[in-house]
Nucleic acid binder design. Sequence first.
DNA 1: GCAACGTGTGAGAACGTTCCCAACCACGGG
DNA 2: CCCGTGGTTGGGAACGTTCTCACACGTTGC
Lengths: 333, 333
Amino acid sequence: MAKAAGVSTATAARALGGYGSVSPAVRDRVAEAAERLGYRRNSLARSMITGTTHTIGLVVADIENPFFARAARGVADVAHAAGYEVLLVNSDEDPATERAAVRTLFEKRVDGLIVAPASTDVGSHLGELPRRGTPIVLLDRVVPGIDADAIVVDNERAARRAIGHLAGLGHRRIALLTSQGLVHTNQMRLAGYLQGLGQAGLPVDEGLIRMAEYTREAAVSETEAVLALDDPATAIFTTDNLMSLGAFEGTQRTGRAVPDEVSIVGFDDLEWMTIVRPPITVVAQPTYELGATAATRLLARLAGDDGPPQTLMLETTFIVRGSTGPAPVRTTA
Amino acid sequence: MAKAAGVSTATAARALGGYGSVSPAVRDRVAEAAERLGYRRNSLARSMITGTTHTIGLVVADIENPFFARAARGVADVAHAAGYEVLLVNSDEDPATERAAVRTLFEKRVDGLIVAPASTDVGSHLGELPRRGTPIVLLDRVVPGIDADAIVVDNERAARRAIGHLAGLGHRRIALLTSQGLVHTNQMRLAGYLQGLGQAGLPVDEGLIRMAEYTREAAVSETEAVLALDDPATAIFTTDNLMSLGAFEGTQRTGRAVPDEVSIVGFDDLEWMTIVRPPITVVAQPTYELGATAATRLLARLAGDDGPPQTLMLETTFIVRGSTGPAPVRTTA
DNA sequence: GCAACGTGTGAGAACGTTCCCAACCACGGG
DNA sequence: CCCGTGGTTGGGAACGTTCTCACACGTTGC
């Protein structure tokens, strides 16, 4: 024990911790001893007594998904700048995994949590934490009835806008390619899609609403399917980047020309979308900021902010690129 | 305190922890009380005494980079399956940040560390940990003189093979697009590039070796530069996925046809590389497995394996796609 | 010259577990 | 009837900090 080098534990702690008052001589002596012995403070013991671990938990569906990776980076940057570390868990959109993760993180006494909740229902495990004093911020998705801040994007509006764009180009057969399970965001995007159709006076065709398994292959085959209909889609709106990839690849495979025969609008802007031919029109999300503001909000809570829970809605940008064009002229049989 | 519900802390701990011997009646009573009071064990206190946190630290350059994201996923999956949590830190290839991160993680008493070291030199902060009993596994990169396992890829061979492929197609002006700072992996890839040239009997032209700042834009302009030489490159070999993106975009911008005028070989296979036209020939790395085996190795160390440090070299795969073709016929002036 | 005050220091409690040890009980064998 | 044994339980130390409190000084002000 470094304390064996002259002074009491209390004094050594003061010298090392830089609080209380210590004489310069003692401070130096302690510093020297600590250096010599290679002393490293034990954060666990400190956390026990201070009640704060300077660690926040982050639960996302899958860190490998560029969306979450970027959001995580936003979280990590803000957290790190404030002296916090990030404990990361992948939930794979599985409520049970998420529940277990939240529990474990709580037991590890994270100071707060940022969660992209898998399920919109039974968020009881999420609601429990704020009650126990561990603040939680919902990322990207909202769970009704939870006493927590949420940082989201206006998915409905973004989807409406995308559909409006396509309808404005004369498209009447607009497909929606989303994934099974209907996470909260996708529900909103579906809602926006339906509203968009309504505003454009277009009918809803169940056959154009495709819910693919969450894999590239499934997205590809759903795309092919929707293009192989008797009255095929002339435009495809996807609800996330994996579906965008599938839609693009599926369209390629059918040999349809983009945008002359099929238009594509993706959700979430990734780097490859501009080097692909044609580049893809997308709803760009402020992904990094989503994570960063979630962290900022959480830090505010940790700093004592106990105002009512807020839901912050960040702006999306609709970026028109080459993948959308006028609907092909109807060659009515 | 849940213990206030009938028994001593010792007994309650036994009942909850499932060790020692407890009568069924007491076990039930404790379980009921814990349930009723919503008792959650405090892992910090447990860790203090057991000396294990069931947490491993992961230090990567940037979680937003698909390579690290995927490797991280591999780490997380293996760790999680064994009941470990992952504390993530981005170093941004900055040795100082990395050093601070390692120190903080150590103070938080992670059971072990997986680090993709930024710098090949002065790994003193890395060497210190094993000496203190905290095992560390090097990911993707090796640091000489460190008493630690390492999970890497045979970068030299992979690069040689890529160059061999291009030389075999008749290319004599093969550029290398890498990033500044020359991380260990890139040094190896550069070495492989040089060896490849040597084996093919090609001269080394300094003007063809480009070290770009680590941004997409820089990669693009270096690509443009190398294609604008008096005696331009007819092939470009990149050393990571960001450089690949830049090379592809840069080539597009110059209007050069791929592969008829310029061939491209990328390092690290990403999803977009097959939907881009032409699809890109790459050295595919077992990225997920890199992370997964690093975690496996670390867990083995934590389980008591104290054999000599191993360096595991995983196999890369060379995937020929459309971006490489015969060198254009020399129109000598 | 004495009270009041401030600075520097140490003793010891506390955080919530796990673990070691001792005590207790019932039971069975000698 | 007594003793040993094994299962069950509680007491208390320990982990390494922080924090409160008390005390020993020296200095200042009246």
